[in-house]
Design a protein around this nucleic acid. Structure first.
Lengths: 225, 225
DNA sequence: TCAAAAGTGTTAAGTTTACACCCATGA
DNA sequence: TCATGGGTGTAAACTTAACACTTTTGA
């Protein structure tokens, strides 16, 4: 049944991952200092080629797992990048995805093997090809989505303090947030609930630990930060 | 220089177009009743395969022009659709785009040759493959974008009445808008300006014709509807 | 003369912003 | 005892939403 299609050309299709982590009150990206061609020695996103036996989404998940050892990570598609000469080698059409993960949970060995490093989002190096455009679009889309859907929690531990959550959103929006107004908004959302646990590591007094309640969110999918 | 890539498979890459028009107070899509395989006889979006000598964006423009005869049409990418069996023939990865055009300006002959028809968005037939998902995503993205960027004007003639503009936004949001509140918001935007022309076709009294001022928008890119 | 669309302001409700002090504790 | 981060409420500014009548004119 290939008769309708076979006059058309075929292309390499890649996926590239914009991997966000949150640490030290800033967003970070997991980037490769390439030890392989093309563009050996330069910085790039983690990427890989789509294979026959996987969907494009699955390819992105596989590539992320190859670098981090993680599965079931939150990912969202940024879009397709299809300029003719975007890859300096051969023509490759790439689909970019961003991933949000807890920066304390990944496979250090794999990351080291790939010569990958967490880089503060305010100190990004030049990236190969159109990877900078991918990062910019990912950042804008993630920011937009984080304001109306509870995706930010993927960047935090299961239990977190309100100060941590506030710092996270300050990093996402890249602007300061008023503490009292922030806490008022949190209090209005049923899906963020206080636990009886206390974090003593961040302050002398100790801060209440909160968690995101998935079920409560599904019952009342209200989220605005 | 293909040595790094050649172990990887290649794929057909297609583009599919969600073509929006505005008529009779409703959004419409330009759809094909297919006269060709695969899925002959069924309804689908206009699509085509990416070629070697064009970017993916350019392929989308070309495919749109093949059907409508139009160039310089507003288009935005919806995203890549890459399930393994999304196309029932061979594996095809498709990138969807939506287009916004003035429903009075297109090449009737080309459209007829392709057996394409404008269909009210509330009366869409079943579509092949994952085209319905493409339409839903396109609709959501267009709605979101139309609220913060002046893309809606692409669906109207250069000169339009405020009633037309209001009907358009009611169609985009699929909900009624208060006339006085709407006109107040328009009055606050420098980029929408009254001309000295009057439309006499829509009412006995006649209505002032307005136009979008691109330069004014660039100087003060403020838009909220 | 009347039907049909154009045009026009005000008020109440709700949302957002700005802002400062006391608390608990470990060092 | 004091430095550090945790925790709390109110009032003003702004934005949004609700609402009804007069005007013009061609049929």
């Amino acid at each position: 049944m290939d008769s309708y299609y076979s006059i058309n050309p075929k292309f390499y299709v890649a996926v590239d991952c914009i991997i966000f982590g949150f640490s030290e009150k800033d967003l970070n990206l997991l980037l490769l200092k390439r030890t392989f061609e093309p563009a050996k020695g330069e910085w790039s996103l983690m990427g890989g080629f789509v294979q026959e036996n996987e969907s494009v989404d699955d390819a992105a998940k596989r590539v992320l797992a190859e670098l981090t050892g993680l599965e079931n990570v939150y990912m969202a598609q940024v879009g397709a990048f299809g300029s003719i000469h975007r890859d300096t080698g051969e023509r490759v059409i790439s689909v970019a995805y961003y991933a949000l993960l807890n920066i304390n949970e990944y496979d250090r060995n794999l990351v080291q093997q790939h010569n990958a490093f967490w880089v503060n989002i305010h100190e990004l190096p030049s990236l190969i090809f159109d990877h900078q455009a991918m990062v910019e679009q990912a950042r804008a889309q993630m920011q937009q989505k984080a304001s109306i859907e509870p995706i930010g929690f993927n960047l935090l531990p299961k239990l977190f303090t309100l100060s941590q959550l506030q710092s996270l959103y300050e990093a996402i929006y890249d602007e300061p947030i008023d503490k009292r107004n922030f806490r008022k908004r949190i209090a209005d959302m049923d899906c963020i609930e206080k636990t009886d646990k206390i974090d003593k590591t961040g302050s002398k007094r100790g801060a209440a630990l909160y968690q995101f309640n998935e079920k409560a969110y599904k019952q009342a999918p209200i989220f605005k930060l």
